[in-house]
């Protein structure tokens, strides 16, 4: 890109020289060497196992298992668990957050107690606890409190591995989501609630139409973070032998001892799903940015297209300086 020429009154045109960045080239060189070393050890290096010399990272085994049935079924369970637990977390968390901000002190206390308990104990403990619930309550009945029950079921038939993991992860997540949603709600200016109540809107309507949509901008980024975290935390369900992605991999390597390649297989899937979640989060954030800035930021696709046509993004600040120094009024 050539430097723009600036005319100032009668004096000869001046040439603007951009700042040079020599250290950038040093950084490029260092990183290039490190990257070459990484590629070499990942792809080309070998090691001796027993009597054989083998490729160090055994990518062929990874490739063999990446799309195998047990791994894909494990992935499906992981995804299902993530979605169900996040839905529980978001819904229950929102209820807890609204309870926490209620004028009723009993409701506030209940919400506080819930968050205190579920945030104060390890989620792994909670998962195992739910799994062993049948030990405490062999049967579950539905009926009048302290009165007769109408229906009875054995706890073990209801509370399987998947439900135990769901309850452990979901109820724990709700405690964290409650804090995130609460932070979002209190980030919305008090004047918004006042303006809405002055129009005759009532509490629930104000929450739903005015406060929550604005709180979303604060709630979405940490919720995306929580979702990614949840995806990985579901691996804890392997401790109660639920065949999610990690446990599926463990089952295979416990037989064939290809531990590292199978862990890599699982890791690649976790990374793949995380990447998809990144994209999803970006577009959700963009949706809730409505009205928050004068124009929406470009999507990556729009940005690529812009780059492809090699058009300089207009920079109003620089344009203003250049044109005003040329002696013209410009804003």
């Amino acid at each position: 890109m050539s430097s723009p020429e600036v005319r100032t009154g009668q004096s000869p045109p001046l040439k603007a020289i951009p700042v040079r960045h020599p250290w950038r080239w040093v950084a490029v060189a260092v990183i290039a060497v490190l990257a070459a070393m990484l590629v070499n050890t990942l792809v080309f290096s070998t090691t001796v196992r027993g009597v054989q010399r083998q490729p160090r990272w055994q990518w062929s085994i990874v490739g063999h298992y990446l799309f195998s049935g047990p791994i894909l079924r494990g992935l499906a369970v992981t995804l299902e668990l993530t979605v169900v637990c996040m839905v529980i977390g978001v819904v229950l968390g929102t209820i807890l957050a609204v309870m926490r901000l209620s004028p009723n002190p009993v409701v506030v206390g209940t919400s506080w107690l819930y968050v205190w308990f579920f945030r104060g104990t390890p989620v792994l403990l909670q998962i195992i606890f739910w799994y062993f619930m049948a030990y405490l309550y062999p049967t579950i009945s539905v009926g009048i409190p302290f009165g007769p029950g109408f229906a009875h079921v054995h706890t073990t038939t209801v509370l399987g591995k998947f439900i135990a993991a769901t309850l452990g992860l979901g109820l724990n997540e709700a405690a964290y989501m409650a804090e995130i949603v609460r932070a979002g709600i209190i980030s919305v200016d008090e004047g918004q609630t006042e303006a809405a109540s002055a129009l005759g809107m009532r509490r629930v309507l104000i929450m739903r139409r005015i406060v929550i949509p604005q709180a979303m901008r604060v709630i979405i980024p940490p919720t995306g973070n929580e979702t990614i975290s949840m995806l990985k935390t579901t691996a804890l369900a392997s401790t109660i032998a639920l065949t999610e992605l990690l446990y599926a991999a463990q089952l295979i390597y416990s037989e064939n001892y290809k531990t590292i390649p199978l862990l890599i297989t699982a890791a690649l899937w976790y990374l793949a799903v995380t990447s998809v979640l990144y994209v999803g989060q970006y577009y959700i954030e963009r949706h809730y940015a409505r009205g928050s800035s004068r124009s929406l930021p470009m999507t990556p696709i729009q940005r690529l297209r812009n780059l492809a046509t090699l058009r300089r993004e207009p920079n109003p600040a620089i344009d203003a300086i250049l044109t005003s120094s040329a002696g013209r009024e410009h804003r």
Partner: peptide, 19 residues
């Protein structure tokens, strides 16, 4: 709420709903 619906109010800082 019903009473407020019949009284209009204009604030110093507008308090429009930005979304």
């Amino acid at each position: 709420a019903k009473m407020r619906a019949s009284i209009g109010m204009v604030f110093q800082h507008f308090n429009l709903f930005p979304h």
